[in-house]
């Protein structure tokens, strides 16, 4: 089944149901998302960072005096190397850099193979839509990772935040506590009844994908061609690629309307909670692109925020 552009689907659905095809305007209680600038560093000084974005445009941002940067650990913004890929949370229409994450990557997948004794090399299956990845857990990080991932064995889930260095992904921080079950044994969602709670609350995480939008686990397998779709322990409704989701960061009220652009096959297999500002209900409900996640006020090194979603 060929997949149409999401916007086209939204417009056709709106035409047949007589609804407005565009996203609903933001309500007064919602806070506007941050400006996010991402690209490759061309030059950086203590007060100015110059980068090139994906379209080849040059962006110059003033570095705020209180700005912090992360590259495998907290560093001074001026110490970031040229050529590093950065995601910047910006103020004042994207002209002032406030938080900078450099060469950060999210390593989420099902463990295929673990090799090595001191530095561990882990082969991961990152789902049918993403490539298989080979990552390295350096000895200095292995303690931290092992505490939260006690079963580094094939078949178990793995989720860490790391650093991309010369094409190799190094795991630095565990992004969550490893689920105690195998990836194929996801617990069923809680019983839900018609007319029950209409809101969907849970954990929003981020993942490495370039397209702005969200990956959502509850898609029909026949529509997406993804045999791993349609699994979630959060009791989510079925939606489609192209559906608009209104995602609200419960912690600070920032809300954005984002399209579903990918199948969140792996997100649905985690039944964890986020403890950012309160304990979220169990289960990952959306996986956001890094820029969308930062725009909604998320910290890439923390890996999740408590979210509530509704249909946009």
């Amino acid at each position: 089944m060929p997949y149409r552009a999401g916007e086209r689907r939204r417009k056709l659905a709106a035409a047949v149901l007589g609804r407005d095809p565009g996203p609903a305007p933001r309500s007064q209680e919602d806070t506007a998302p941050y400006d996010v600038v991402s690209g490759e560093i061309l030059d950086v000084s203590p007060h100015l960072i110059i980068l090139e974005n994906a379209d080849g445009e040059q962006r110059r941002l003033v570095i705020a005096p209180w700005a912090t940067a992360w590259r495998g650990g907290t560093v001074a913004p001026a110490d970031l190397p040229a050529g590093a890929r950065v995601v910047i949370r910006a103020l004042r229409d994207g002209t002032v850099a406030e938080r900078i994450w450099a060469d950060i990557t999210r390593i989420t997948g099902v463990i295929r193979e673990v090799r090595g004794r001191r530095d561990l090399t882990i082969e991961l299956d990152c789902g049918p839509h993403r490539r298989e990845r080979s990552i390295v857990v350096p000895y200095r990080s292995s303690g931290r990772i092992r505490v939260r991932h006690p079963k580094l064995e094939p078949g178990y889930l793995f989720d860490a935040i790391g650093l991309l260095d010369q094409g190799t992904a190094f795991a630095h921080l565990p992004a969550t506590s490893q689920p105690p079950y195998r990836a194929t044994a996801v617990p069923p969602p809680p019983m839900a009844y018609e007319g029950g709670e209409a809101g969907i609350s849970g954990t929003a995480v981020w993942a490495d994908f370039a397209e702005e939008g969200v990956a959502y686990p509850m898609l029909e397998r026949e529509d997406t061609g993804c045999d791993d779709a349609g699994v979630s322990c959060a009791g989510l409704p079925y939606l489609a690629l192209g559906s608009l989701l209104r995602v609200r960061n419960v912690c600070d009220g920032r809300t954005d309307t984002l399209p579903i652009v990918a199948c969140g096959c792996l997100a649905g297999r985690f039944c964890d909670r986020c403890l950012e500002c309160d304990t979220s209900p169990r289960g990952r409900i959306v996986e956001l692109a890094a820029s969308s996640y930062v725009a909604l006020g998320g910290d890439l090194t923390k890996g999740c925020f408590n979210a509530r979603v509704g249909l946009g």
């Binding site: 060929p2 149409r4 689907r9 659905a13 529509d223 079925y238 939606l239």
Partner: peptide, 12 residues
């Protein structure tokens, strides 16, 4: 159909 998708309780 040339395209089909599901959204909540509707299939298009």
């Amino acid at each position: 159909p040339s395209d089909m998708w599901r959204e909540l309780c509707w299939r298009f």
